[in-house]
Write a protein that binds this DNA or RNA. Structure first.
Lengths: 185, 185
DNA sequence: CTAGACATTGAGTGACCACTCAAATTACGA
DNA sequence: TCGTAATTTGAGTGGTCACTCAATGTCTAG
């Protein structure tokens, strides 16, 4: 059980962790910085979390879940819906998008836990895109659809990577143009 | 002036730095790790470099330069040559490719020096690709060619990012397919 | 109101970080 | 072979890291 006070502190810590990863990346996200932003002392942090890693993983899970719209949904998607949902995610939840990119790279280096999570998520995403591509182009072979879906997903990641470095980059224009050219969406 | 011994130590340090960034990323690249791999003691390191940052920057410059084939060349390129050269760079100099991706993300966070370097290089790369696209499709507007070139470059980065996480990913197939679909190369 | 669970405080722990330096050793032109 | 400059040695510096803990303060069910 937790008292109201602890629940609020926990929320502040997660917000601080999320914005820190977005602002300065995983390496700059220290206990001291988290506590300072959350207005909490280290002792309180460790009363609420077992480790720094646990707080980070909570935020990362949140980011990965947020990439996929309509979670739990199993039916078919339109490709344009998938792309628009992703664009909405990146622009409306920029912090989470930065978290997603940060862990997609530096997170997936050594830490097996994060790396597996990233790769598993990538697989699911490609499959969802592949189904949408097949729906849009029924005449296309399944293998070909899957390959184009993977091209799309990795390319979207690359564009997002550039977007977080240069927010003048028009992600939406490039993403839609890419979808139009590769699968006629 | 440097003695032979110092020149060799410097070379070992740069090799160690390069492979460390490739293996464990920027955050895992410590003086201790560099010295251990280079078989050098910290005092020797600081006899040859002003700081850890200097050694890293030297390697990063090397990586950025290696992305562009035929440096100093100013004439027109074929788009397929540019793509093939990039694929050769990624597969034949995987360490440098990993360095390039590592700094494209985590490097471009806080450190203004690295970030500016990355963005400047991106601009030049896009321009070179745009020229190649215009050459391939003379009827295309310059703006459109540039936009497609930028789509291409950011997408290639995204694919490379995925490739360094999952070396089973067939970078060449996806890259060539992307080029074929977006500009008919 | 009170008891006991929960939360905060903040100094302290050992480990590791980038980096230094004086003394000893090695290289190499003259 | 000698003088001096380059290099190596390795213990040591101050700082920051993630994390701990006993004491104190706060909450809330009954």
């Amino acid at each position: 059980m937790r008292y109201r006070r602890g629940i609020e502190a926990r929320e502040r810590i997660l917000n601080a962790t999320r914005s820190l990863i977005a602002d300065v990346g995983l390496e700059g996200t220290t206990i001291k910085a988290i506590c300072s932003r959350a207005e909490v002392l280290p002792g309180s942090f460790y009363n609420l979390f077992d480790s720094k890693e646990q707080a980070i993983l909570t935020v990362v899970r949140e980011a990965i879940d947020a990439v996929d719209p309509d979670p739990g949904h199993t039916g078919p998607d339109e490709l344009t819906d998938l792309i628009d949902a992703y664009l909405r995610f990146v622009t409306e939840q920029e912090d989470l998008a930065r978290v997603y990119i940060a862990i997609a790279v530096s997170g997936g280096r050594n830490r097996t836990e994060l790396k597996n999570r990233v790769l598993r998520h990538h697989e699911k995403r490609v499959e969802r895109f592949a189904a949408a591509v097949s729906r849009l182009r029924p005449e296309m072979e399944a293998d070909e659809a899957r390959q184009r879906a993977e091209t799309l997903v990795t390319s979207l990641n690359g564009m997002t990577l550039h977007y977080v470095l240069d927010t003048d980059f028009d992600l939406a224009v490039h993403a839609r143009s890419l979808a139009a050219e590769t699968v006629g969406a």
